[in-house]
Amino acid sequence: MNRISLFCAISLIGVTGAFSQDAPAKINLDDPNLVFVSDSVIPIPLEIFASLDKLGAQDWGRQVESRDLRVDTNRSRTAMLFGLVVSEGFIGVQAQDKESVRRLGRDVLALAKSLGVAEEVEVHANAIVNGAGRGEWEMVRSELDKTRQTVINKMKELRDDELVALVSLGGWLGGTEALASVLRDNYSEEGSDLLNQPDLIKQLKTDFNELPQRARRGNLFTQVSMTLEHLESLMRSDESGAISEGKVIEISLATRNLVEAIYES
């Protein structure tokens, strides 16, 4: 059989709605025989912003920050910073802020160098800087996602799983800080449900707590642990499905404090 022609011949033949006939209507998630795929995928900020924007235009430009990047030899901090910077790149894309995205593209490369993955990241970082200069936002968005995934893949290949978890955590933190800040400035019950992430934060907390002690030594990582604990109690909707304005403010403050601590430590 010509496998190339098989590949090229794919076309859609049908769409069926409602429920699949071949799947159980309910599964017991506590069944010990269930097999879960271990790779957790953290939503990128744009995925969350896409939902919020459906409720009306948001002022994403206000969320673009200009923070000085200081790289040191602490690889755990660098991995978190990497995740943070990429998520800030996504915020810059949402705000269509050319200068901030160009700067973040350069920061991404500096951090990749420090993590020893510059070779893999360079092409993406250059595409981010150049694409932002031309205002090609779709391409920049795609390159940011590729950058993040490339680093995660390389870390896995190098068996640096602890850094994978920290890149993911940093990325989630940056997106959550921006989301909470937007909701704090323009609170709506409907939009607040985007912060309802109890299972995701539980997963992040578990991943963090499972890191070897050497990867989370020092005051910064004590703060990470405490903040995750605090956020777990806040990022849970009430009976109406909303998260109160007071909790949104708390989430905003807690995430902002942690982001600043990561940059400044």
Binding site: L6, A9, I10, G14, V15, A18, F19, K26, I27, L29
Partner: peptide, 19 residues
């Protein structure tokens, strides 16, 4: 197939291909 956090099957649109 997609299930919610209680294990209930979520209504979806299934798309099939010619392969």
């Amino acid at each position: 197939n997609v299930y919610d956090s209680s294990g209930n099957l979520v209504s979806s649109e299934a798309i099939t291909f010619d392969t």
